[in-house]
Amino acid sequence: MSTVTTSAKDLRHLLTVAVAFTDPEDDLPPLTAVYLEAGGGILTATGSDRYALGHIRATATGDWGRPGLAIDRDHAEWIADGLAMLDGTEVVHLVTRDSHLTGLRLRIHHQEMSVEIPVRDSWTYPNYRLLFRKFDEQPAALNAPLMLRTHVLEYAGKLRELFGHQPTRWTVLSTTDAIRVEVGGCFAGLLMPAKDATPHKSWPVPIGVPEPTTAGS
C-alpha cells in the first residue's frame, strides 16, 4: 500500500485537463482513461484521444513507482466534480490497494471520508515518453507559418479554456511530426499531425520557433 498526497485544487485541475484530452466514445481502453503517475515530488495525469495528448503535472508527496494507474474518464470527471465542492487547500490522499496498483482509495484529510475508485490495467498504457523524447533529441529548426489542421486549432481553443491566457509555447520539428505545446511549467501536450493537404480545412497560423543555437553563441 502506497500513499500520494496533494491538494484538492491540484488534483481537480490534473483530472479536468487530462479528461479533456480523452475520447468518451472510442473502443480502445487507453483512449477513455486518465493515466496517473507519482514520484519525485510530482503527480502527473495523462490523457489522449489518438490525435492529441495532454500531460499535466502538480506537486505531491509519495511514490507509487511504475507503472502508474489508469482510471476511467467517467470516474475522473466524477472525482473532479466532487473536489470542486471542497476548499482548494484541502489535503487529498491517494492510497493504492496493493503493490500491483489494482485499486485506489481517495481519502479527504479533514473531511474524514474515503472513496474506492476502480482501476484499469495500466500496464498496457502507451509509452508517451517516446513521443516527447523526439523533441528533446532534435533542435526545433522549422520556421512559421504552417498550415494547421482545423482540429489542431480546436485543441488550441481547448487549452485556452483550461489555462486561460497563460503563455503558450509551440514547437514544431517538421510538417509531418507532431506539434509540442507547453503551458507554463505544468503542461506539455502533443497535437498531430502538423500539416493538412487540404487547404480548405486548414488555416495559416504563425508559430514562432527559435533558431537552433550554435556552439559558442
Rank of each mutant, 00 (worst) to 15 (best):
M1E: 04
S2P: 10
T3A: 06
D10E: 11
L11C: 01
L11A: 00
L14D: 00
L15M: 08
A20G: 02
F21M: 01
T22H: 04
D23P: 12
E25L: 10
D27M: 14
D27A: 09
L28F: 07
V34M: 13
Y35G: 01
Y35V: 04
L36S: 13
L36H: 13
L36C: 14
L36T: 14
L36Q: 10
G39M: 05
G39Q: 04
G40V: 00
I42Y: 11
L43R: 07
T44E: 09
T44P: 11
G47M: 05
R50W: 12
Y51F: 03
Y51P: 00
L53S: 02
G54R: 04
H55K: 11
H55A: 09
I56W: 01
T59A: 11
A60V: 07
G62L: 03
D63I: 01
P67F: 12
L69W: 06
D72H: 11
D72V: 04
D74W: 15
A76P: 05
A76L: 07
A76R: 03
E77A: 13
E77I: 13
W78A: 05
D81I: 06
D81T: 15
D81W: 14
A84T: 05
A84Y: 15
G88C: 10
E90P: 02
E90T: 15
H93T: 12
D98Y: 11
D98K: 15
S99N: 12
S99D: 06
L101T: 00
L104T: 06
I108F: 13
I108Q: 11
H109N: 07
H110N: 05
H110T: 07
E112C: 13
V115D: 15
R120C: 10
S122V: 08
W123K: 06
Y125W: 09
Y125H: 07
Y128T: 10
R129G: 15
R129N: 05
L130A: 05
R133M: 11
K134T: 09
K134W: 03
D136L: 10
D136K: 15
A140I: 08
A140H: 01
A144M: 14
L146I: 09
L148G: 03
H151S: 12
R160T: 06
R160I: 02
E161T: 11
L162V: 08
W170V: 01
T171D: 04
T171L: 02
L173C: 03
T176P: 02
D177P: 05
A178Y: 01
V183F: 01
G184Q: 00
C186N: 15
G189F: 00
G189L: 00
L190Y: 00
L190G: 00
L190R: 04
P193R: 01
P193I: 07
A194R: 01
K195L: 11
A197P: 09
K201Q: 05
S202C: 11
W203Q: 09
P204Y: 00
P204D: 00
V209M: 14
E211L: 13
T213Y: 04
T214V: 03
G216A: 00
S217C: 11
